[in-house]
Design a protein around this nucleic acid. Sequence first.
DNA 1: CGACTAGTGTGCAACGATGTAAAGCCGTCG
DNA 2: CGACGGCTTTACATCGTTGCACACTAGTCG
Lengths: 361, 361
Amino acid sequence: MAVTMHDVAQRAGVSIKTVSNVVNGYPYIRAETRQRVQSAIEDLGYRVNMSARNLRTRRTGLITLAVPELSLPYFAELADSVISAADTAGWTVLIEQTSASRERETDVLSGRRRHLTDGLIFSPLALGPDDIALFTVDFPIVILGERVFGAPADHVTMNNVAAAKAATLHLASLGRRRIALIGAHAGEQVGSAALRTAGYLEGLAEAGLPHDPALIGEAGLWHRSTGAEAMRRMLDDGTEIDAVFALNDALALGALHALHAHGIDVPGQVALIGFDDVDDAKYSVPALSSVDPGRDQIARTAVELLLERIGATGDPAPFRRVVPDSRIVGRESTGDVAQGQEGRLVSVQEGGIETVEVASG
Amino acid sequence: MAVTMHDVAQRAGVSIKTVSNVVNGYPYIRAETRQRVQSAIEDLGYRVNMSARNLRTRRTGLITLAVPELSLPYFAELADSVISAADTAGWTVLIEQTSASRERETDVLSGRRRHLTDGLIFSPLALGPDDIALFTVDFPIVILGERVFGAPADHVTMNNVAAAKAATLHLASLGRRRIALIGAHAGEQVGSAALRTAGYLEGLAEAGLPHDPALIGEAGLWHRSTGAEAMRRMLDDGTEIDAVFALNDALALGALHALHAHGIDVPGQVALIGFDDVDDAKYSVPALSSVDPGRDQIARTAVELLLERIGATGDPAPFRRVVPDSRIVGRESTGDVAQGQEGRLVSVQEGGIETVEVASG
DNA sequence: CGACTAGTGTGCAACGATGTAAAGCCGTCG
DNA sequence: CGACGGCTTTACATCGTTGCACACTAGTCG
């Protein structure tokens, strides 16, 4: 049915192996021979059978990116960046959506939901530090996010605490005294919510502001709807506020919606800042200030680390943790710039590479 | 290195083929044997080698979804829907980003950028009706969108003209007389822009409104920034308007930004409606009215048609064109509902399946 | 002049699974 | 009692490539 190397070889009058050599850019081939093979390939419309090559080489050229949901803009943009970075290096990305379900996240690691790929970039949302054992597998992993530390894998993360503290201090520096937080996860010790909340508290302390529990708004899932809801609850309770730090942009945009619904002017009465700096932030009304965690750099670094490890032979290198630079992007919602202006950038903290020793299995 | 069927067979004391039979759910196996094999699999942590299976069965269980960019919310949400639909059927989706580049779109069809998958769901943005020849390939394709008709492939599309007409008439029914359009592609005869513009003109005609070229705003790419820009241009020109129909939601949200920047009240002075009904539409301020083209149904149908054709043996069935139902979702930006209320739905037109005869190659 | 190196091409045996066909075994039916 | 059919298991060839080892030619070096 389909054209194989055998057909090409026959037509070009060479051996099957020579066709393979041409296809793979083996250098020691006479120009004339190469030409003849190329022509045969074109004439017959031959395409390499990837399944056969993959079987033989024990490599597929695919990597998995496992994220909670593509419909969340942060992850869609992350996926975009990862795909582009991988593509540049000649690799292809297979996306798994885990819906933040524990079962699906475990499946990704166990391989039930990860056939066929050479490595995994994994942004877990359900698994936590107690699940480190699950990360001992026979393919390389790069972990994203703040839920799992100490696993035998490279890790690209962000300056959550420092960035959240900077965002809080930014609001305080604008003279705000009643700074609410939207998106907290009560009782959690790990994950972005906990870290960013910690940064918020540090920021309050440094600014000499009291910590008022009424200013903490819970939101389990970080969607617009939950952000709007949390904000609405707080406003309905009559809690007095003059600023809001939302733990991501979706929450912030939801909160913005609720603030407007209550007839509250942003930034006049309440200043608002989000986290992630997704594309949307630029275009809301007013344009949303945010923390840019360096998403593009995260994607590029993750792909780089993963490919390095996939290609590695010999002794496994020690695992690394990379923290890209993050910045505050001040826009209209904090009164940092006037309408139509670009965001003002405040560098938060420079990241870097840290080498982590983990007992390897 | 890795565990193979051979190892499992040895441990379970059966032949390799019996292991294969167990793994594949072949019914005629003694319960006791099956149990022994299962245990061996668990003990050894065996996983099927997909590359080997794919080579042997000539099928990978993967389908490609080729879209312009994931960072565009419409395509991110479409990808989400397609992945979920495929997953339900036990298939995996590989996403290709074409950046709307002609070269990359051609590559997707030629296979240079589409190894390893059994079929393709393709939303072209650069290829047009002159490129039909490229669609004659040896794997099934389902085309999305409105740029390519008559190609030898199934096609899932939308009621663009009817829906755009309905959106325009909706604005007219609110008493609006100067209805601007944002997102036109001057000179184009095919594609969503042309069809929706045609619908807009039909709507104007039916409402007895004159067609004023000053009301047509160009925007090559349908991003927020270009929407904002087109709107700004029109407002700066002093063109008088009392309604805007943006050809997609990103444009609409950009336009909303520009309207606010000009101090124009929505919907008080200008009513606004978009197209696509992306998630964001619900959460803008004011909430954006839009046209829901039935994205979920599109995704499900596309997957269904593709898998049907992949599984098909024997004579190829004639190609089908499916048009899901679309609806108008009236929200605050057209004054259809008050703040916080759900959108009001107006059914536009019922879709259906049409069978198309195309000369098969 | 013999040994070596670089350049060019090939044959064979895998990679790890599944399709095909067929071989036993058993009970049942005519 | 022999044929038959359902159940259970297996042997073997095969999917299309690439790694490895080797053959052969020319030119080069000591």
